[in-house]
Structures are given as structure tokens and as C-alpha cells.
Design a protein around this nucleic acid. Structure first.
Length: 815
DNA sequence: CTGCCCATCGTCTGC
DNA sequence: TGGCAGACGATGGGCAGC
């Protein structure tokens, strides 16, 4: 067994770095074809040039050995005749898949941080001289390199030290420190195995903006590096509470939140000043940053978790993407099961090939019954998509085609969509899921029981079982990703539409049983149970009904379970994906509402929170809420909003230059958001941020205040603010999140009136003699636009479906 | 010319 | 380079009505 720290290739040799040495291994590369295909195309294959040998591996596959560096032509030729398998693998991937090896868990870490000459405004990693580098090892040894006369000496010192450790870890190091070090090393001809990828204008596809890295990324094949800022961002990317507190995940903000510690203050003194005049303070400042970085890691166990996660997948530490972790696991698992995985699809040329063939319908969200409800019980599926894959045997290799084109017989599981899968031969993806999920159960139910709770072993096992869970849940995701080897639209859509079928079926069943479902999304149903029914009984009955439904499709074993989760004593539904509830024990849960969103005005959040508390935890009448709304209206009108109340913080999800481009689809110029306009202006004035993150590049948050909304939004930065803001605009913005909640709960009152300035003229004695007829007219007038809006969102869904249908027909024509 | 409808983009969330 | 659904804000083209 070889334990690798890192593994890469040099020409046609695999290089393996272990604790003791670097191994150079000359390794033969191959790809696979099906034995049946090989028989069919025997002549073609025998004539094929560039093949060293064919080898039958006795499990139905032929290995085609090809000289690694000249493989492309041969692969293309074979691909034109038959499907290939694992032909995209790099040499080192072949090695990791086939050999007895695993990721080394015992890796030493060097935490580090650099300081640069900051006399030139703006942030451009690598442009300025590195004046110092501080580092602390996982062995607690401290190192400091400082020399303003010779940057080369600083670099040499650091590079030599770095080779003695297995992992380099820093804060924002992948987008800044390592980029700068790599560039300055190149300048001084100091050998350091990192290169810089400029991905400013790269289309990052579906990657969530929160998880995107900066403009530059430093990469290495031989040296492991972990950017703790990026990892923490990834781990917490949906923790809105934390994000609101730390925003861009600057070191100071995070250290303050997690450790209660801060950076060394050097307000008013530049790094260059410290470097030239106060070197002791520079050292202290630089070293403190490293200490904080190391402590955050120890506190959050980031590297430990990553090591566990990569270890169970047998993935390299530097391959942190989903497929980078899934592939090594799946390739090895497939081989154990006597299977080979399809080659990755050839990279398509953006412009022409993108014919939307790869998008498909997802989960189903029921139209909610809006308003305040009592006693709402929630039922849901446990891991819906993995369970569907297992139950219906959904896999690339078990797929037999659509029932309309494929002769159905008894060995068939047919999805509601009509796609057929083998009943007798388990597919590779369900096999992998079985293995992953049973590994997880083994850890949770056996191994974790054997160790002391909260001990280091306990936490290691916890991370391990969690990694297995993540791995299982990622399988559906990559089956729906058109660039992955697991992709097939019919399978991904088969999974989601089967989910739709099952949840809709249960919804109707609930109604027939006399219960009143009020909302549901993808895998859940929120329901007001019939008087006197017991949640657990309903759960059992639902499960029975579900089992019956599923057996109709010819499945062998049902892994799906629909069970009771909790009951809200009070529950408010505002819109799809937006609700709030409180349980009998007082615990609250709010989803999707504005108060959870990070770009919302603090005042709007405060008011909505206030309102929900009144609705869920206290008893008030409609009249109380009218008074409440009038108070808020008056508050804004009297000019009581503070500057903090009206300051927005929105994120640049890409580089400034990439906004306002002409849309390829419509040929029209896309609008530039207000915060981007502010960022452009400020950047041109040369302002900078802290923590070595430019304040005006991808990922930073931009503060702005709206000063006019007469002719489009006119916004300024707080530093440019003269105290005059648009009252009408902020009245709207602070109140409307609450307005929507009130409209949901009391639909007959015209709540929109409080979003405007109070009328100067006295309103025609509405209060003294409330005229029912007139009130109805008002109700109509506020309901009307709402209905249109709702119709609009339904329309959007229908239009999407229509577009998909057209594409489907097109496909049918070309087939 | 003005105001409204509507499609689209951008951001961020739910699952 | 995991997926889709959906809410909501902002913008600008198209169009009806003045």
C-alpha cells in the first residue's frame, strides 16, 4: 500500500510524493471498450494504428494500450466507431484507480501569510514587492522572512521552508498570497512549483457565486495547498447568519466572530511605513495574521475535515471540485464491480454546440395556501433522490431506453416518464450508492458507538460519515451536469420527475384521506391533519400507500420512505419557498423570507422579524397590525431612518468588466445593477479594501445608498453621501417585505397604502363609516396586481416547459 | 411623449 | 465547471393611448 501526499505526472511517468520520497513510476496507460463492440469491429481495430496491445480483462471489457503521449488520434478514431470508457483519464488517474494506494492522512501543515509594498493604490497580486512572509508549522515552529532590500532572499527562505511541509495553508492564499509568491518567484527566477490561472473572463457555468474564487488562482501539481478562507466559505456558504456578520470572509471579521480575537491594529500606518520604519510592528502584524489563520483552522477543524473527505474518496487534496472527489471513488468502485465508466464527453465549443439539449425539469413546488395557519404538520422523504436512484435502479449502464422505442419485457422497471431500467442487473450508480450509504450506516451505528463521545476519534468518524453522506447526495447533481461522465438527460430528468410523481401522488392521497395539504416543495408536504389523527399513524399509512404506488412500476425493493417530521403550532405561508413557523416547544424556523437574505435592508429585516413575532407568538387582531403599519409609515415619513438603516450591501458576483455585456441570447445590452455602477466609479478613484481583497472585485460587497429613484436608481457610496435620500424609495423597501406577510395573513385589507407617504388631505371618512362596498373595491384593486403577479410566475414555468417541449420535438426530428 | 406590460438579467434563496 | 424552481428588484424595448 502506497500512501500518497500528492500524485501527478511528468511526461509518461507517474510521480508519487510520499512521506519518505518521490517515486517515479513508468506506467502503461490504457482505455477500455466493450468486448461486444470489439468483436463487431474486429477488422477496424486490427487495422488501427498506434495501439500497443489489446487485453481482455475477463469482465466484458477490452483494454486498449496506447502510448500515453500519442493517445489522442487513436482515441478519436475509436470514438467514431464505438463508445469508449475511461479514455479521458490522465496517467496519474489511471494509476490511482488501479493501484493499491490511498491519500496520506498524516500530513504536516505550514500556515503562512505575506505582506507587500502598498504604496501603489489598488490590488493586483504580484505587482508589488513582497516585504515579509510569516509562517507557523503544525509543529508550532515560527518562521519569519523579512528583507526589503532583497525580495529574492525572502522568497528563497520561504520556498525552502515550504518543501519541508506537506500542505501550505493560508487565508485567501489561493487568490492572493500564492499568486503573488508565484509571480515574484518567476521574476527572480526562484523555482517554485505553482502557476497562475487567470480566470477573470471564464464562464464558470453553474458554479454558485458564493463558491467562486477570485480573478487569479494559484495552482500546483506537486504541492498541496489549502485556502482556509475558501474552504470556510464553502462549508458555510448557506449560513446566512454568519455571512451577514463576516460578509466577504475577511480574516479580521472571521477571527473576531469565531475566536473573539483581532488582527494587530496599524491604522494610519501603511505596510511600507512599517516595513521601513517599524519592522518589529510589521513582524507582529504579519505573525498575528498567521496565528489567527492557524487558530481558525484548529477551531473549525477545516484541514482535518478535508483530509477525511478526500481520504474516503481517494482524491488528491488539490482536487476539491465535486467531480474531483467523486471520480476517484467511482472509478475504483466500478472496477471492483467489474465495470468501467464512460469517457467524459468531449468539451463542446461554446457557441455552436450549446443547443440547450442538456437542461431539464426539476422538483415540483406546490402553490401554497397563503396565510396564517394553526397546527401544520410536515412530512417528507428521507434523501429523495438517492432513494429513487436505488429503488428504480437508475444508472447509465442499466438504462434500456424509452418504453416507446424499446421492447418491454418482464425484466423492466419503468419510470413514470417511460424510461426503462433493468430489474435483474444492478447498475453501477445504485451499486456505488449502496456501498456509500452502508459505509455511512456502519460508521454511524457501529463504529461511532465504540468510541468516547466528543473524543478526537469520535469527530473523525463523524466527519467520515458526513463525507459519505455528501458523496451520496452529490451523485444526482453530477448525473445532471452535462460535462460529467455520469450525465444522461433522461436519467437526471427521470429522477426529478419520478420525485414529482410521488409527491403529487401523496398530496392527492392526503386530500382523499380528509387532510388539508397547504404547501410542499420537491420532497415535502405541509398539511393540516384531519381532527383526531395521529401523525405517526398518518406517516405509516402514507408509507404503505407509497409502497403500493411504487410497486406498480415493477421495482424489486423499495428504499423510499415518507415520514413525519414535525408540527408547527403556528405557521405562515407567504409564497413558494417563503414561510415561517413555530413549534410547540417554541422553536422557530424561517425559510426564504427577506429576513434570511443577506442583501436585505437591516430595517426591513427588523420589521419583518418584529411582525412575525407578533403573528406567531402573540395574539393580535387585524386592527393592531394596522396601527403597527401606520407607525412604520410615520417613522419613515418623520425622517427617522439612520444611515445604517438605508445602506445596502450587495455582492459583486463577478468582475466589474463582466457586467453590462451584450446578451448572446437576445442581442441586447444587459442592465448594469446600481451597486456595480457605484463600484465602477469608486474603483476608478483608486480606493482599496483590506485583507488583500480588492474592495471592487469579484466577491466583495458594495455598500450603497439610493439618493433618487426618479429616472432609474441613482446610488452613491456612504462616503459620497450628503444626507439626502429618497424617502419614497426607502418607505417602499423597508415596508414591502412586511407588506407581503400582512397581505398573506389578512388579504382583505389594502396594506399597500402604508408603503406610500401618508395623504396630506384627509381621507374621505373611511374610518368613521366603513363602507363594505368600498372596502371590497379596495380589496379588488390590491388583489388584482397580486393575481397578475402569481399568474406571471406560473406563466414563467409554463414558458420554460414549452421551450423544453420544442427542444424535445427538435430532438425527435433529428433522431 | 407617457405610462404600462413584459421579457430578461442579476442575486439569492429552497430543496 | 453538481442540478432546477422561484421570488423579487431593476432595466429597457414595445406598444397603446394621449
Amino acid at each position: 500500500m502506497i500512501k500518497f501526499i500528492s500524485v501527478w505526472e511528468e511526461d509518461d511517468a507517474v510521480v508519487v510524493r510520499t512521506k519518505r520520497e518521490n517515486l517515479y513510476i513508468e506506467y502503461e496507460w490504457y482505455f477500455c471498450i466493450r468486448r461486444d463492440d470489439a468483436k463487431k469491429h474486429r477488422e477496424f481495430l486490427l487495422d488501427l494504428r498506434g495501439v500497443e496491445k489489446f487485453e481482455d480483462d475477463k469482465t466484458g471489457w477490452i483494454r486498449v494500450y496506447v502510448p500515453y503521449l500519442e493517445r489522442q488520434k487513436t482515441i478519436s478514431a475509436v470514438k467514431s466507431m464505438m463508445p469508449t470508457f475511461e479514455a479521458d483519464l490522465k496517467l496519474w488517474q489511471r494509476w490511482v484507480t488501479d493501484e493499491d494506494c490511498e491519500l496520506e492522512m498524516n500530513q504536516s501543515v505550514l500556515y503562512f501569510d505575506i505582506e507587500t509594498d502598498d504604496r501603489t493604490p489598488g490590488i493586483e497580486p504580484g505587482r508589488d514587492q513582497i516585504v515579509s512572509i510569516a509562517a507557523i508549522g503544525s509543529d508550532d515552529k515560527e518562521h519569519y522572512f523579512y528583507d526589503i532590500k532583497s525580495e529574492k532572499k525572502v522568497l528563497n527562505g520561504f520556498v525552502n521552508l515550504a518543501t519541508k511541509y506537506d500542505i501550505l495553508a493560508g487565508w485567501n492564499s489561493q487568490s492572493f498570497d500564492l499568486v503573488a509568491i508565484a509571480k515574484r518567484c518567476k521574476l527572480h527566477k526562484v523555482p517554485f512549483d505553482f502557476w497562475v490561472a487567470d480566470q477573470a473572463h471564464k464562464d464558470l457555468g453553474g458554479l454558485d457565486s458564493v463558491r467562486r474564487a477570485g480573478k487569479y488562482i494559484a495552482k500546483s501539481k506537486s504541492i498541496n495547498s489549502i485556502d482556509l478562507m475558501m474552504k470556510l466559505k464553502e462549508m458555510r456558504y448557506r449560513d446566512t447568519e454568519m455571512i451577514k456578520q463576516v460578509r466577504s470572509f475577511g480574516l479580521n471579521a472571521v477571527a473576531k466572530l469565531l475566536l473573539g480575537k483581532e488582527k494587530v491594529d496599524h491604522t494610519g500606518k501603511s505596510i511600507w511605513h512599517l516595513a521601513t520604519k517599524e519592522p518589529k510592528l510589521l513582524r507582529e502584524y504579519n505573525m498575528q495574521d498567521v496565528r489567527l489563520t492557524k487558530e481558525i483552522d484548529e477551531n473549525q477543524k477545516i484541514i482535518q475535515q478535508k483530509l477525511v473527505e478526500h481520504h474516503i474518496c481517494n482524491a488528491r487534496l488539490n482536487d476539491y471540485t465535486s467531480s474531483g472527489r467523486i471520480d476517484p471513488y467511482a472509478l475504483r468502485a466500478a472496477k471492483r464491480f467489474g465495470m468501467r465508466l464512460p469517457s467524459k464527453p468531449d468539451r463542446v465549443i461554446e457557441e455552436e454546440a450549446k443547443d440547450d439539449d442538456d437542461d431539464y425539469e426539476g422538483g415540483y413546488a406546490f402553490d401554497p395556501v397563503k396565510g396564517l395557519h394553526d397546527n401544520v404538520s410536515v412530512f417528507d422523504f428521507a434523501s429523495l433522490y438517492p432513494s429513487i436512484i436505488k429503488t428504480f435502479n437508475i444508472s447509465i449502464d442499466s438504462h434500456k431506453g424509452h418504453k416507446s422505442t424499446h421492447k418491454a419485457h418482464s425484466d423492466c422497471i419503468t419510470l413514470p416518464t417511460g424510461e426503462c431500467f433493468s430489474k435483474s442487473k444492478k447498475g453501477i450508480i445504485p451499486l456505488i450508492l449502496d456501498e456509500v450509504l452502508s459505509s455511512r450506516d456502519q460508521i454511524r451505528h457501529v463504529e461511532m458507538k465504540k468510541v468516547k463521545k466528543d473524543s478526537p476519534e469520535y469527530w473523525n468518524l463523524h466527519y467520515k460519515q458526513y463525507s459519505f453522506k455528501v458523496l451520496a447526495n452529490s451523485m444526482y447533481g453530477i448525473m445532471g451536469a452535462s460535462f460529467s461522465r455520469y450525465f444522461k438527460r433522461e436519467l437526471a430528468e427521470g429522477i426529478t420527475l419520478t420525485g414529482q410523481h410521488l409527491i403529487k401522488d401523496l398530496w392527492v392521497w392526503m386530500q382523499r384521506e380528509g387532510h388539508v395539504p397547504i404547501y410542499g416543495d420537491t420532497d415535502s408536504i405541509f398539511v393540516k391533519l384531519k381532527k383526531g389523527s395521529d401523525e405517526e399513524d398518518v406517516s405509516k399509512e402514507a408509507d404503505k400507500k407509497l409502497d403500493k404506488e411504487i410497486k406498480r412500476f415493477g421495482v424489486k425493493e423499495n428504499f423510499l420512505h415518507f415520514s413525519f417530521e414535525k408540527t408547527y403550532t403556528k405557521f405562515i405561508s407567504v409564497a413558494k419557498k417563503k414561510y415561517s413557523g413555530v413549534a410547540a416547544d417554541g422553536s422557530e424556523k424561517t425559510m426564504g423570507l427577506e429576513l434570511k437574505r443577506r442583501e436585505v435592508l437591516p430595517k426591513a429585516e427588523e420589521w419583518q422579524r418584529d411582525l412575525l413575532k407578533m403573528l406567531l407568538k402573540e395574539s393580535h387582531t387585524e386592527a393592531d397590525f394596522i396601527i403597527w403599519a401606520r407607525e412604520k409609515q410615520k417613522f419613515v415619513h418623520d425622517g427617522k431612518l439612520t444611515q445604517a438603516d438605508i445602506t445596502y450591501q450587495k455582492k459583486l458576483s463577478r468582475e466589474i468588466e463582466d457586467y453590462g455585456k451584450v446578451s448572446r441570447k437576445t442581442g441586447r445590452q444587459t442592465p448594469t445593477p446600481a451597486h456595480v455602477k457605484v463600484a465602477m466609479r469608486l474603483r476608478d478613484q483608486g480606493a482599496v479594501g483590506d485583507d488583500k481583497m480588492s474592495a471592487y472585485s469579484q466577491g466583495s460587497y458594495i455598500q450603497y445608498i439610493v439618493v433618487s429613484d426618479e429616472d432609474g436608481i441613482e446610488a452613491v457610496h456612504p462616503s459620497e453621501f450628503n444626507g439626502k435620500y429618497s424617502k419614497s424609495y426607502y418607505m417602499e423597501k423597508c415596508y414591502s417585505p412586511s407588506q407581503r406577510v400582512l397581505e398573506a395573513c389578512f388579504p382583505s385589507h389594502p396594506w399597500d397604502q402604508y408603503a406610500r407617504e401618508p395623504k396630506q388631505k384627509k381621507v374621505k371618512s373611511r374610518a368613521s363609516s366603513p363602507d363594505v362596498g368600498e372596502s371590497d373595491v379596495h380589496v379588488q384593486s390590491i388583489l388584482a396586481p397580486k393575481n397578475i403577479q402569481k399568474g406571471g410566475s406560473d406563466l414563467a414555468r409554463e414558458r420554460r416547459a414549452a421551450r423544453r417541449k420544442i427542444r424535445k420535438e427538435k430532438r425527435a426530428q433529428t433522431d
